[in-house]
């Protein structure tokens, strides 16, 4: 049995604004084992990014967040740590790659300075050592001529290279867990494939775990061991990758998979899910997907289904799950 690295229990992240409450993350539970890649899939606005930021306790204070539940990392509850203890977790134990490589690097500092800073934040070492470590970090993310690139500024390198530098910064202090939030969305297709391969290799080489946030099942298929499907701030289904693709039990997962373009009928009309996700300040009292679900019955509108394990490693939140075919 693999060792648990991260265990999120009943996490809630609410935002308060103008007397209203927005339930961005609503009773989310998940876990990540050592050496494992967990995918988190959902449409934009489903709370995927907020989930990543909640784990690092970096939800912007300006949004007036309220976070409850438990986030156990190697048995320690991150939500009860002091800000100082949390700082040694960030970058050192858990790190994150953000979506947009064009704006993720500080324009006024060299690449080297930004990587060195990430190293020195967690390790007392000399400037020379930090510099060679920074060069090494650049080499690891396959940047050519790292000895000269280390003194470049962000605006001097391409978008694809920038995203690799962001990776180098995130991995500089050898974290145990990396959260990658749509790391390839803004890259073109070739660069996407390269970057994913890089992440996969680095994950294996460092023996770390990865949470990959994406809206793309193609990426999931390629990268992940298990996957959690998010809808309107809740996880509706969690299962090993194979199960999700072959036996999705939640109606939302099935609909999402059906709306995904496939290679065998590239030009066909894609089925889409009718309706729109609910507003986070006005969530239905029953299952959040019920208003859009073709199978919904009266129970679905009345009460939120509890999380139930339907086979080993596979749980869903649905009153009337799809049959396993």
């Amino acid at each position: 049995m693999a060792k648990r690295l991260l265990e999120v229990e009943n996490l809630k992240t609410y935002f308060r604004s103008q007397g209203q409450v927005f339930r961005a993350i609503d009773e989310v539970s998940l876990h990540v084992d050592e050496n494992e890649t967990l995918g988190i899939v959902g449409e934009s606005g489903s709370g995927k990014s907020t989930l990543g930021l909640s784990i690092l306790r970096l939800v912007p204070a300006a949004r007036n967040p309220l976070i409850a539940g438990r986030i156990l990392f190697e048995g320690r509850n991150l939500l009860t740590l002091s800000e100082r203890e949390m700082r040694s977790i960030r970058g050192g134990e858990i790190s994150m790659i953000l979506q947009d490589p064009m704006t993720s690097l500080n324009p006024v500092f060299t690449l080297g300075a930004q990587i060195e800073e990430a190293i020195l934040a967690h390790k007392k070492t000399g400037a020379q050592n930090a510099r060679s470590a920074a060069i090494e970090a650049l080499r690891q993310v396959r940047i050519a001529a790292p000895e000269t690139r280390v003194d470049s500024y962000p605006h001097q390198i391409s978008g694809g290279m920038r995203q690799r530098v962001v990776g180098a910064i995130a991995l500089a202090s050898r974290p145990r867990l990396l959260i990658a939030d749509e790391p390839t969305t803004s890259l073109d297709v070739t660069l996407q494939a390269q970057y994913l391969q890089l992440l996969k290799d680095l994950r294996a080489a460092h023996g770390m775990s990865l949470i990959l946030i994406t809206h793309d099942f193609g990426v999931v298929a390629r990268m992940c061991d298990r996957v959690a499907v998010m809808y309107a701030g809740s996880i509706v289904e969690t299962a090993p990758v194979r199960e999700i693709f072959h036996r999705p039990r939640h109606w939302y997962t099935a609909a999402l998979l059906a709306s995904m373009p496939k290679l065998d009928h590239p030009r066909g009309h894609l089925p889409t899910i009718d309706g729109a996700p609910p507003r986070l300040n006005d969530l239905p009292s029953g299952c959040k997907f019920a208003p859009r679900c073709a199978q919904a019955q009266s129970t679905c509108f009345m009460q939120m289904p509890e999380r139930q394990i339907i086979s080993p490693g596979h749980d869903i939140r649905c009153w009337y799950p799809r049959e396993a075919t």
Binding site: I89, R90, S95, A121, S173
Partner: peptide, 8 residues
Amino acid sequence: KLARIKGL
């Protein structure tokens, strides 16, 4: 955000 993620 990235600077905070680094643990600064």
